[in-house]
Design a protein around this nucleic acid. Structure first.
Length: 309
DNA sequence: CCAGGTCAAGGGAGT
DNA sequence: ACTCCCTTGACCTGG
């Protein structure tokens, strides 16, 4: 069975104070330190459990977890937090619920993760962040597989995609085993960056990690492939694990013609074309789970065609 | 309690 | 050189 999901925030629950990305600005972190961060992390973790339960009860079985569960985790080791024992128990509990309810969980670390960077300090920070994402999934007891993936963009092209991709593959080897087993790469939304074709030839062919096909991004960086060709090429990089994709409608086209085309709309306005493939799809819409539920209701009555901008 | 200003990070694009 | 955007708006202060 295919799975459709959404990212990070559940609007209905956040109205009741259930959020998973409580954080703090640097000034506060300097004051309260890792101890304060650990306290927020405990609240965040508890609420992931709430969201997963809500998802399961609502017929949703794919969810992208927030990367902000542990505020400022670059500045400490999770296992050295004073609350670590509690954190361990809670994370394992949340993971157990997810596995019982057959929930697929993913991460999508932010744009400051640049594994291709020519600057060693940036690469080091990225490796730590990716390893910590993997560590969280490990603490949850989730299998080390792209069933529970960590999805990133390469993060920079530096005007030379080929050597950038080679650097990515070299730095990939420096990740923890757990992170390596989970890492997947996504196509970009700028022509100067990485298309599915680029990623296939420059990354998949070298290190064999799967490609996340983002329908919306593909429209801005096709690599000369049609949507169907790119989706199929990405599909060929997934083995026994079901292919993960991202989908969103353009805000410019559908809601506000003045905005840049790359911006995401609140809801989906067209039926997702799967071309006969069995896909898992993360819906990236501003209206979050509400957009997903609305889509599930309307799906059969929507047209497949994009309305071109 | 609320509105508004502010907030770590890397790279790319538009101005 | 500066601003905005991107994974995901949220934190904090002054009223």
């Amino acid at each position: 069975m295919r799975k459709l999901g959404y990212a990070c925030i559940n609007l209905e629950l956040s109205g009741k104070g259930v959020t998973t990305n409580r954080g703090m600005i640097k000034r506060t972190f300097d004051k309260v330190g890792a101890v304060g961060a650990g306290e927020l992390a405990l609240l965040n973790i508890k609420n992931i459990g709430e969201i997963i339960r809500w998802n399961s009860d609502s017929g949703i079985s794919l969810y992208r977890m927030s990367s902000s569960i542990f505020p400022w985790m670059s500045e400490y080791e999770i296992s050295e937090l004073p609350q670590f024992r509690k954190i361990q128990i809670l994370l394992l509990g949340v993971g157990r619920i997810a596995l019982e309810k057959k929930q697929r969980l993913t991460f999508h670390p932010g744009p400051f993760n640049v594994l291709v960077s020519p600057n060693e300090p940036v690469v080091k920070k990225t490796i730590k962040d990716l390893n910590q994402h993997a560590e969280i999934m490990d603490l949850m007891g989730l299998p080390q597989s792209t069933e529970y993936p960590i999805n990133i963009h390469l993060g920079g092209a530096y005007g030379d995609k080929e050597s950038s991709m080679i650097r990515f593959c070299e730095n990939f080897k420096r990740l923890s085993e757990s992170a390596k087993k989970r890492l997947i790469v996504e196509n970009d939304d700028k022509a100067s960056m990485f298309s599915v074709k680029d990623l296939y030839e420059g990354v998949y062919s070298r290190i064999g990690i799967p490609i996340t096909f983002d329908y919306h991004h593909h429209r801005f960086c096709s690599g000369g492939l049609t949507e169907e060709e790119a989706l199929n090429l990405a599909a060929s990089t997934w083995n026994e694990v079901r292919q993960l994709t991202h989908y969103s409608s353009s805000r410019k086209t559908m809601e506000s013609p003045d905005q840049k085309a790359q911006a995401h709309a609140d809801f989906l306005y067209e039926k997702i074309k799967t071309y006969g493939l069995s896909l898992d799809i993360e819906i990236e819409a501003k209206a979050k789970e509400q957009a997903l539920l609305k889509y599930l209701i309307e799906e059969d009555s929507l047209l497949e065609n994009y309305i071109d901008f």
